[in-house]
Computed example of a mutant assay.
Amino acid sequence: MQDSLPLDLKGAKPQAIMDIWYPGSQGGAATANLLFGEVSPGGKLPYTWVRNIGQIPTIYSHLTTHQPKSFGERYWNEPSAPTYPFGYGLSYSSFAFSNLRVGKASVAPGEGVPVSVEVRNTGTVKADEVAQLYIHQRYGTAARPVRELKGFERVTLAPGETRTVRFTLTPKDLTYWASSTKSYVQDETTFDLYAGGDSTAALTTTFEVRKP
């Protein structure tokens, strides 16, 4: 069996791409409804779309490099950042995220962390957005990925409507397997939170895990 290869889209310059893999028996009708604006698309990529086949594998949850600020500049002839990041997707509307908040600035190990963020439809049509919550653990028993998806929720918003989306980070969300200890650990540390429409979300805040 031939290995499947990623599609190289760097030569294509469309205003949008409708990615329809296995639409089923009603796929034609669903596609027509999307193309003619009967409904607004709201799908999100469940993977990172690489810029060049020679750059794979590229994952959003990679470890911090020795030059984190220039991570996307690995090659001299083109960026190494993905063409489309994990969680990315377009709509016939636009959205803005604001007021990312945590219920407590500091929690004890084993406590949950309530998180909320406001999502506003800044466009002119009713549409769906998928609010995504990512974490980054700054330090601990082992190196941790730059971002990890820990929550997402689809919301349908009318033009101009704002809604507060709420998440709860559980102790399990903040725990990981450490090969050095051969056990699951939850470190006392600082976490960065990010919320937005894909894995490059810029809206951020922090909280700490500390023993009382």
Rank of each mutant, 00 (worst) to 15 (best):
Q2R: 14
D3S: 11
L5W: 14
L5T: 09
L5C: 02
P6M: 06
D8A: 11
G11H: 11
A12M: 09
K13L: 05
Q15D: 10
Q15E: 07
Q15P: 01
I17F: 14
I17P: 06
M18Y: 15
D19H: 06
I20D: 01
W21R: 04
Q26E: 07
G27W: 03
G28D: 07
G28M: 10
A32Y: 08
A32L: 12
G37S: 08
P41N: 12
L45M: 11
P46M: 05
Y47E: 04
Y47F: 15
T48N: 03
T48V: 14
T48H: 03
W49C: 05
V50N: 05
R51T: 08
I53G: 03
I53E: 15
I53P: 09
I56G: 08
T58R: 08
I59V: 13
Y60T: 04
H62Q: 11
H62I: 02
L63A: 12
T64M: 14
T64R: 15
Q67G: 06
K69W: 10
K69I: 00
R74V: 13
R74W: 09
R74I: 12
Y75L: 13
W76M: 14
W76C: 11
W76A: 15
W76P: 04
P82M: 09
T83H: 07
T83K: 07
G87H: 02
G87K: 01
Y92T: 13
Y92I: 09
S93I: 06
S94A: 14
F95K: 01
F97W: 13
F97L: 07
F97P: 02
N99G: 01
R101C: 02
G103Q: 03
K104A: 12
S106T: 15
S106Y: 08
S106W: 08
V107S: 03
P109E: 05
P109N: 05
E111R: 00
G112R: 12
G112S: 15
V113Y: 06
P114K: 02
V115K: 03
V125E: 04
K126T: 15
A127K: 01
A127V: 05
D128T: 00
D128H: 05
E129N: 07
E129M: 09
Q132V: 04
Q132G: 03
L133Q: 08
Q137S: 07
Q137L: 12
Q137W: 04
R138H: 11
A142M: 11
E148M: 13
F152A: 08
E153Q: 15
R154P: 00
R154S: 10
T156I: 14
A158D: 13
G160Y: 03
E161R: 09
E161G: 07
T164V: 15
T164L: 07
R166S: 12
T168E: 12
T168V: 15
L169E: 08
P171M: 05
P171Y: 07
P171V: 02
P171Q: 06
S179D: 13
S179C: 04
S180D: 06
T181L: 09
K182F: 13
S183K: 10
Y184A: 11
Y184K: 13
V185R: 01
V185K: 00
F191L: 08
F191N: 04
F191H: 08
L193R: 05
G197N: 07
D198E: 01
L203D: 00
L203W: 00
T205C: 06
T205E: 06
T206F: 02
F207M: 11
V209A: 02
P212Q: 10
